[in-house]
Amino acid sequence: MNITATHINLYHVCRRELWLHANGIRMEHTSDVVAEGKLIGELSYPERAERYTEIEIDGVKIDFYDARNKVVHEVKKSDGVENAHIAQVKYYLYKLQQHGVVDATGIIEYPKLRQRELVELKEEDINAIKGWEADITDIVSANTCPPVIHSRICRRCSYYDFCYVGEAID
Rank of each mutant, 00 (worst) to 15 (best):
I3P: 04
A5Q: 11
L10W: 00
Y11Q: 05
Y11I: 00
H12K: 09
V13E: 08
E17T: 12
W19G: 10
L20G: 04
A22C: 09
G24D: 12
R26G: 10
R26I: 13
M27D: 04
M27A: 13
D32E: 14
V34T: 09
V34D: 08
V34I: 12
A35T: 07
G37H: 06
I40D: 04
I40M: 06
G41D: 10
L43C: 04
P46T: 00
E47P: 00
E47T: 07
R48D: 00
E50H: 02
Y52N: 02
E54W: 04
G59C: 11
G59N: 09
K61F: 09
K61I: 15
K61L: 13
I62S: 06
F64L: 04
F64S: 14
D66K: 06
A67S: 15
R68C: 12
R68I: 15
N69P: 08
V71L: 13
V71M: 11
E74D: 10
V75F: 00
K76L: 12
D79N: 10
H85F: 14
H85Y: 13
H85Q: 13
I86N: 02
A87L: 07
A87I: 08
Q88I: 07
Q88K: 14
Q88Y: 03
Y91T: 05
Y91H: 09
Y91V: 10
K95Q: 03
Q97I: 01
Q97T: 07
Q98F: 01
G100P: 02
G100E: 02
V101D: 05
V102Y: 07
D103P: 13
A104W: 08
A104P: 01
T105V: 15
G106V: 11
I108R: 01
E109L: 06
E109S: 12
P111C: 03
K112Y: 05
L113T: 03
E120M: 14
L121Q: 08
L121I: 12
K122G: 03
D125Y: 06
I126D: 04
I126Y: 10
A128C: 07
G131D: 11
T137W: 05
D138W: 01
S141P: 10
A142V: 05
C145Y: 06
P147R: 12
V148P: 10
I149H: 15
H150E: 15
S151D: 15
S151I: 10
R156T: 14
Y159A: 11
Y159G: 07
D161M: 11
D161G: 09
C163K: 07
Y164M: 00
G166K: 02
I169C: 02
D170C: 01
